[in-house]
Design a protein around this nucleic acid. Sequence first.
DNA 1: CGAGTACTTGAGACGCCTCAAAAAGGGTGG
DNA 2: CCACCCTTTTTGAGGCGTCTCAAGTACTCG
Lengths: 248, 248
Amino acid sequence: MSEPSPSGSEKIAHEEETPCRSCKVGRLGFCRFFKDVLPDAPAPFYMGRQSFLRRRTLYTQSSSIKHIHVVREGWAFRYMLSQDGRRQILSYQLPGEIISPSFLFSSQPQFAGQSLTKLETCVFDVELIRRECQQDPSFLDHVIATCLSEKEDYEMRLFELGRCRAEERLARLILYLESKQESMDLKANDRIQFPLTQQDIADTLGLTQVHVSRVLREFRERELILSRQGFLEIKDANALRELATGSL
Amino acid sequence: MSEPSPSGSEKIAHEEETPCRSCKVGRLGFCRFFKDVLPDAPAPFYMGRQSFLRRRTLYTQSSSIKHIHVVREGWAFRYMLSQDGRRQILSYQLPGEIISPSFLFSSQPQFAGQSLTKLETCVFDVELIRRECQQDPSFLDHVIATCLSEKEDYEMRLFELGRCRAEERLARLILYLESKQESMDLKANDRIQFPLTQQDIADTLGLTQVHVSRVLREFRERELILSRQGFLEIKDANALRELATGSL
DNA sequence: CGAGTACTTGAGACGCCTCAAAAAGGGTGG
DNA sequence: CCACCCTTTTTGAGGCGTCTCAAGTACTCG
């Protein structure tokens, strides 16, 4: 359970400063904006790279934020933790995504962030990026749009948690993660990455791990999905969409 | 069920153009920023006032947004509606608040908005405000901060819906609406406004109206609260906070 | 006073939870 | 490659919280 210091600059590797325009995740998520707007990106706010093992803390509720991370490889997630240990996962970040875009506007998080899998990030200096926002309106627009799209995700999730059954919640989560990977070009021939444990799913959907196990079994028995070791195959997308219906 | 056209400019009254600095809600919520940043506010983007009866639609998922409303008097709320009629209430707006601040960045809402009580609003032209944002960075900052604070509310609500029992959800909603009114100077001697029906509460907290009725009765019997006709008195704030505990 | 809306109460059902223990998987070192 | 450990998943039995249906009561407002 030992954790690397979240902002220990001695841990940041400076070798290999691939410019965004030739980076393998350069066309994904937020990196795309970097690339489009700033010809020399990631200069000048780039601080190097950092890697994390599985399930390592990137920041906590009490962290003061000086750096932001953009995912290069692997998955990260944000979550809230109550004092008595209940966890609610808020969102997942895939390659190309900023782990917490709102840090660019306010530095006091009310949630924590972890690596879900082995993770590699590009690290940027918050202050320098803020300054860039002030000078470059179209860059600022991208940052705002990123924050707002997270807000829209939250709205869908509120509907899910408040008004959907377990089956529906799970179907929607699977389809959500599929479409996210599809839109980010991370989907390889019908198989999507699915590194969540059942406990992660439970803490995302407001269920218990045991119940998630049962609903997943049902999905498998009905041949809606097929899952093994970190990947998931959607066998019957129409039936899944049927289950997820009621939304808009 | 007849509804006033949400953007019918012929319905907008232009008389009485109180400047924000002498408006009775001028120090509340977003209006405060208007007042501070723009000496001549609400000019030049002010379009007049509009009033709505109880439970009237201000905009729907398919509206294209040209105006934004700021509450002068009464309450409004935003909600999502599924095709089969399930409703999830997302947030409430009190005097001084923009009914949907994110309209200033993207015009296609994925939710709907209604008046909760009789409602009076100031109407502004979205395009003109956007232009102001481009020219006045500190005004833009306020707008962004407003959007982000809604996002933080959502994060708390996700924890509530995903990880709290009915009792805890209700306690948190009551305390939330209390502190909101307190911070907006709308609280009069221990009594807060509480115009929600039990169905509204249910659709906010992911419960049924029947169950809300029972939990409310319990709260009353335990002398935690005392409610009548649109108002609510918090009799035992400590016990309520105890119930809402687990959060952070 | 009547009509509609909101709230209360009861009985029974169901979805999801809790607890518990066993099985399966995955990683590591010998 | 196997033995071991730790994490994750599966399965069962029973209980609780919340839902559904339904009917009756209390508001509120014209």
